[in-house]
Every structure is written in C-alpha cells, then in structure tokens.
C-alpha cells in the first residue's frame, strides 16, 4: 500500500525547502515531522519521502538507520528511555532499568502488549548532573529513584486513561 505523507508534513516540507539551500538538508527535519505522526518510520514512508525530495530510497534508508531517534518499529505510546551511561550508571541506572523490566514485564527494547510502553536503554542524554535520567518521549525526568519511577508510570497510565 502506498504511504501517504500527511498534508501537515507536506506543508512543513515545503516551508523547509525555502529555508535550506539544498533539498537533501530537509530530509532529517522531515523525518522528525513524519515520526511525530505515527511514532515510527515505516519503509513505505522512506520511499514516499525519497520520492517527494527526489532522493534515492537507499539514501533515506541509510539516514534513518544511522540516527537512533528514528524508530523503525511501531512504538508504545510512551517511550521510556533510561540513560545507561557513566554518571547515570553510577547513580543506579542499571537497577532502574531492571526495575522497569520487572514492573512492565518486558525486556529492554520491547513494547508492552497494551501498546502503552516501549522500554529502551539509551546513551548519554546530556543531563549527568541530575542522574539518573529517564526520558519519556521528548521529556526528561531527572534525579530519578525507584519510587519516582513508579509514580511516573502511574501518572502516564492515568494520562492515557484520561484521553
């Protein structure tokens, strides 16, 4: 089935094409826009975007697979990203990750059956002074503890139920 880029994203692409002197530079901003909609970038979307920007599909694929923020699988509504790097590690990130695995009954890299949570260990989020850090989608939660993590999960569940 052919993938249709949304009108909103197409308009954004057109806007960006006027700013950047080369069309290929629009690729990464456009991928961000597309991911906002579905939460991930299917192969068909790479095809459609390549066609829109007149870039070979392979070039798009190379870019999507290079950058870790572009998801290539459907994601849970909340993407829990536990920083695993050095300062967070000292502050107990590994235990936090295990706690979340137990609590959500999934392994790192997996999504809960209800499609609510995807759990990832990620590299340094650049917030080492407030380690350990968990990012939920694009929001940082800093100075985390097991208790705060439990509260966070409850809040996210509540947010989902209230929608």
């Amino acid at each position: 089935m052919a993938y249709k880029i949304s009108e909103r994203t197409l308009a954004e692409i057109d806007r960006l094409l006027k700013i950047y002197p080369q069309k290929e530079a629009v690729l990464i901003p456009a991928l961000h826009e597309m991911q906002k909609e579905a939460g991930w970038i299917p192969e068909e979307a790479m095809d459609a975007l390549g066609a829109r920007l007149n870039i070979p599909y392979a070039r798009v694929k190379g870019v999507v697979t290079f950058y870790t923020m572009f998801n290539r699988l459907p994601m849970g509504r909340f993407h829990l990203q536990v920083c695993r790097n050095i300062s967070c590690h000292f502050a107990g990130a590994a235990g936090m990750l295990r706690h979340l695995e137990d609590k959500l009954n999934i392994k790192e890299g997996e999504t809960t059956e209800d499609g609510l949570f995807t759990l990832s260990a990620v590299e340094c989020l650049g917030s080492c002074g407030t380690a350990p850090v968990i990012a939920v989608n694009e929001t940082y939660h800093e100075n985390m503890t097991v208790e705060k993590t439990d509260r966070l999960l409850a809040e996210l569940r509540a947010e989902n139920n209230s929608d």
């Binding site: 990464i28 901003p29 950058y67 870790t68 923020m69």
Partner: peptide, 12 residues
Amino acid sequence: LEIITHRGAGAY
C-alpha cells in the same frame, strides 16, 4: 541574519 535551529536525531 537568519538563525535556523536544526535538530539532530541521535548520534554522538
């Protein structure tokens, strides 16, 4: 002068 904020996408 035009200032453009360009976001990366996860690559140290």
